[in-house]
Design a protein around this nucleic acid. Structure first.
Lengths: 184, 184
DNA sequence: ACCTGAACACCGTTCAAGT
DNA sequence: ACCTGAACACCGTTCAAGT
């Protein structure tokens, strides 16, 4: 048995790196967190990170995937609530991820991998909105209103709008979306 | 006369640095543009930049101020048009600045100077929107709708939504804002 | 397969020194 | 007042080498 075989099973070190990166990215921000700092947190040499991830953006995506999966799972709990409630819940939930949203947008231009991840995210959001509306809606109108709703929610998060201001905005968005499903 | 007195008058070198930074920030992005590269473009040593600006963020703000002043001046040309037309014009106009918007949001968390600049920007936008509405509007309602409008426009820019998709979104935003000023 | 030490080509920024 | 050379403490990433 090789001397450097760790007691840990295969992919566990990778998970540890993601866990450390996740906490640092959330707490200090992506740019402010060096790869070396992540490596130190997982007790490996800085360049070891590159055995598990192609580059820092790949590590970032692994963290984003983990966070997004959790949000999607937690969403099940409010899927039955009113649209306004759902939107408000989403804003509160994504607040922890605030700094990373801005980073994703900044890196979309420079990293094709981040751009692809971001596209998938918005496609998922649009699908969830469409699925929540009672009855069929004109596709063109739905696209417009879905755009308004998701960009507004994104703005509420990135601009850290407090609950008491975000609430009426969510109410207004929901009222607008629901009025589409009614005739007239 | 000192040997290193340049033929240029006082503040001209500063303006040259801003001009070089502006082009590089717009073309390559803020993070991708090194201070050294800006210095080289203005034919000075890298550290000379720090005689004119406190740090890289201060240089960024100088560029943002210049761009914003131009946008505000250009806005005079469409101030008389319909709200929908104004919004659509704004989206097109700010497209050149797309990358920098994401950078501002990312740096708001880390730089108080950028945060202050960003706050002033949004206050200006809200004031312009309020001024455009015919007749008085309930302040609470105005705040909500103004938020939706500015966040949506911001989203259209940062997500680089093409003209043919942005147009109906602008129309919908304007229709919503105008309905506020009418009774009912 | 997993990990390291050493190196590469950078960063933004500071400081003492020059004119 | 304006500018520079040299240095500081970093970056993200690569590569040859070790087990």
């Amino acid at each position: 048995m090789a001397r450097n075989r760790r007691p840990q099973p295969k992919a566990e070190k990778r998970a540890e790196l993601v866990a450390v990166a996740r906490e640092l990215f959330l707490e200090e921000g992506y740019e402010a967190t060096s790869v070396s700092r992540v490596a130190k947190g997982a007790s490996v040499a800085p360049n070891t990170v590159y055995w598990y991830f192609e580059d820092k953006d790949a590590l970032f995506i692994a963290v984003l995937d983990e966070l997004f999966a959790e949000d999607l799972a937690a969403y099940a709990e409010v899927a039955g609530a009113s649209l306004a409630e759902q939107a408000f819940w989403l804003v509160g939930r994504l607040r922890r991820v605030r700094g990373l949203v801005a980073t994703v947008h900044a890196r979309v231009r420079v990293s094709p991998a981040i751009a692809a991840w971001h596209d998938r995210l918005h496609a998922t959001i649009d699908a969830v909105i469409a699925h929540q509306l009672p009855g069929p809606v004109d596709p063109g109108v739905l696209a417009v209103e879905s755009t308004i709703a998701s960009f507004t929610v994104e703005g509420l998060i990135t601009h850290d709008v407090p609950d008491d201001e975000a609430r009426p905005v969510c109410d207004a968005l929901a009222a607008r979306l629901l009025s589409l499903a009614r005739p007239g």
